[in-house]
Amino acid sequence: MAQGHFRVWRGNAEGGDLVDYDVEVNEGEVVLDVIHRLQATQAGDLAVRWNCKAGKCGSCSAEINGRPRLMCMTRMSVFAPGETVTVTPMRTFPVMKDLVTDVSYNYAKAQEVPAFAPPPGLAPGEYRMAQEDVARSQEFRKCIECFLCQNVCHVIRDHEENKQAYSGPRFLMRIAELDMHPLDSLDRKRSAQDDHGLGYCNITKCCTEVCPEGIKITDNGLIPLKERVVDRKFDPLGVLKQKLTRR
């Protein structure tokens, strides 16, 4: 048993500050364990959102020593002995209380992505696809919607005004997933650029860096989607081919 020094952001939308705590830390624990102990012993009103404690529900997203991470997947052993651990809420979203943020921006953006659209005349149960055709999309299905990628993306993190025009890496990846789907009948390329702001992405890969599921969001999702948009919008030969074939 040892003592750990924590600095936790306490407050709400009106304001707040970092508060210092010394709290017991045991071997094998993760940051969320310590936050729970803090809640149980010193700060009963500390708000923290969590659910599975297994890195699968995506609820306990926060920033630990400035890095967007899941609290339940951040081992205390990664910190040096005596190192202060600073825990703050995700910066990109409005804070509700302490470590809990209002992530409804993401739900609104999710609703703007048209759902999977199978070809007319094909009913559920009649879908037939080869494994190699769906393998690409399956990587994106690992997403647990922790919204760490949305949080770290500087397009909205540093520019609140871009939230209207930009859907963020999670939902651009969703569009890529559907556009790569062998049975999806919608052409989502123009919409990705015009309605979801793909052009704002400057592929600096922070979304990939913070993804707890290890999804290659940029290389396998956003860049392939950018290339597909180029086919439709920017490549003169692609546009010509599209006009000639009326696709």
Partner: peptide, 18 residues
């Protein structure tokens, strides 16, 4: 509906990365 107002946690530091 999306919440497009700021209301973010007041953390003046450019980053808390150590």
């Amino acid at each position: 509906s999306p919440s497009l107002t700021a209301g973010r946690a007041t953390i003046p530091a450019r980053t808390l990365r150590t």
